[in-house]
Every structure is written in structure tokens, then in C-alpha cells.
């Protein structure tokens, strides 16, 4: 696999398998995540993309039947090691979910919550500055700056998703995981999210799950194609879409199934 290399990566997965009870949902997957590249996971529904993505911030811990084997490192440190604090890990590796899930609180509170519980703001004005910066980075500031005390759930779907991105950004993460962040949105809102991903690239290592191949082609530099829990092909996005090495990849990107 061309992209795998021993050089230091932001995050690396080596031989990761995930089981739900006896059922194996992810089979021996190895992948690298780097700061300057957006990594896309594509593949048909149910092939284990979300499951694998959730191993990167240990969200699978919340599912009683889930079991993870293999090794995942963040800056070289094993995130499943006993001395890794999950709470801190999830602040460093933020997550944006498929369905926008703002807290039923004000827009300001949505963004301020993370910095507050992690003690990132020294004062009220500091907190306000963090909120403003995060909303600006998420491209939402202009739309909401006059109604920060309105409920986050009163925003449109696309705005809610950008609010969730702002919320993730506010705790100053190093990696952002996005699980089909635009699948519940209309084309215009989707375009905004994609644009945003472009702008965030470089500042954060981004991993995005998508079932939309055009989207993967548009936003990512590196793509991993999954099928039935296996990593079928992994490489530079341009190569994977123009010259897939595997028959199954070719079938998928030419729309033969999925």
C-alpha cells in the first residue's frame, strides 16, 4: 500500500479489527492520517466505515458489545493504552456526526461548552473570543453573530452542521473526524461544508466518511475504499479514481454496486 510509510504521522492505524460481539465489522485495517491531507473513507453502506472511524476517538467504547484489536496511535502514542485519558483524547480528536446534533442550548453555549469543560478559557472575554473564532472558522459567524443567544436547534440543517463543526473546533483539536457530515443536507449546504473542509485542511488532520464518490474526489487527497469490513484499496485520491488497481474498486466507482 503506497501511502503507508514509517514516517511520523498524526494518526496511524495498524492491523485494526472491530467486533460487535462475535461479528467482525472491520478486518485488519491499516491506515495513516496526516495533517496536510484530507482522508476520505468510501464504500457501500454497512461496510464498516463509521465503525472504523469511531476507533480513532474511541467512541466505540460507548457500545458495550464493541471490541477493538490492533493499534492506533496519535503522535506515536497508543490511544488504547491504559494511560490514555479518553476525555482528553476526544478533545484532541474531535468528531462531527452524520445527523447534525447541536445541544438544545443557545448557539453561544453550543460552542462554549467544550472550552468550558476543558478549562480552555481564562475569562469571559476569552471565552467569547474562542466562540467568535470558532464560528468564523466554521463559516457561520456572519449568519449568527446577531443571535448568539438563539437556540442552536432553530438553525437550518446546514447551519446546524456548521455549528457542530464550530463546536468541535472550539476545543482546539488536532484531528477532526466527520461521519457523512453532508448526507442529511441539501446540495447548497453540502457545497458549503465541502468548501469549509478545504479551508480547514492543513490546520487540522481531517478524516471524512462519505458514500458520495464525487464528494470524496472533490474534498480529499487520500481515499480508502472499504468493502465488507476490509480495506480494499488505499491511496492518493487522484490515482484511486483514475486508475484503480482493484477490480472491486473499479466496480464501485463506476457505479456497479453500492
Amino acid at each position: 500500500m503506497t501511502a503507508l510509510s514509517p514516517a511520523p504521522h498524526k494518526m496511524s492505524a495498524r492491523g485494526v479489527s472491530v467486533f460487535y460481539g462475535d461479528k467482525q465489522a472491520v478486518k485488519d485495517v491499516s491506515i495513516d492520517v496526516d495533517m496536510d491531507k484530507v482522508t476520505a473513507f468510501i464504500g457501500p453502506s454497512g461496510c464498516g466505515k463509521s465503525t472504523f472511524l469511531r476507533t480513532f476517538n474511541r467512541m466505540n467504547d460507548t457500545i458495550a458489545s464493541a471490541r477493538v484489536t490492533g493499534e492506533i496511535t496519535l503522535d506515536g502514542a497508543d490511544i488504547y493504552a491504559d494511560d490514555m485519558d479518553v476525555v482528553q483524547l476526544r478533545a484532541r480528536v474531535g468528531m462531527v456526526f452524520q445527523k447534525p446534533n447541536p445541544f438544545p442550548k443557545s448557539i453561544f453555549e453550543n460552542v462554549a461548552y467544550g472550552p468550558r469543560i476543558h478549562g480552555l478559557a481564562a475569562s469571559k472575554s476569552d471565552l467569547e473570543a474562542i466562540v467568535e473564532r470558532s464560528l468564523k472558522r466554521a463559516g457561520l459567524w456572519e449568519e449568527v453573530k446577531d443571535r448568539l443567544s438563539d437556540s442552536g436547534t432553530a438553525l437550518s440543517g446546514g447551519q446546524q452542521q456548521r455549528l457542530c463543526i464550530a463546536r468541535a473546533i472550539a476545543v482546539d483539536p488536532e484531528v477532526i473526524l466527520m461521519d457523512e457530515p453532508a448526507s442529511a443536507l441539501d446540495p447548497i449546504a453540502t457545497a458549503k461544508i465541502e468548501e469549509l473542509i478545504h479551508e480547514l485542511r492543513g490546520r487540522y488532520a481531517i478524516v471524512i466518511v462519505t458514500h458520495n464518490m464525487q464528494q470524496a474526489a472533490r474534498v480529499s487527497q487520500r481515499t480508502a475504499f472499504f468493502h465488507l469490513g476490509q480495506l480494499v484499496e488505499y491511496g492518493e485520491t487522484d490515482n484511486l479514481f483514475t486508475a484503480p488497481r482493484e477490480e472491486r474498486t473499479k466496480d464501485y466507482i463506476t457505479g456497479r454496486y453500492g
Binding site: A91, F103, I117, R167
Partner: peptide, 18 residues
């Protein structure tokens, strides 16, 4: 209470008690 709210809070590093 929708599970998505729990996910959201856990996802930015809230502890279970938070």
C-alpha cells in the same frame, strides 16, 4: 433523551458524569 445528544457531548470530551 436522544442518543445523539450523548454522542455530541462525549465527542468533544465530556466525561460520563458531565
Amino acid at each position: 433523551v436522544p442518543p445523539s445528544i450523548r454522542d455530541a457531548a462525549l465527542g468533544i470530551g465530556a466525561s460520563p458524569i458531565q
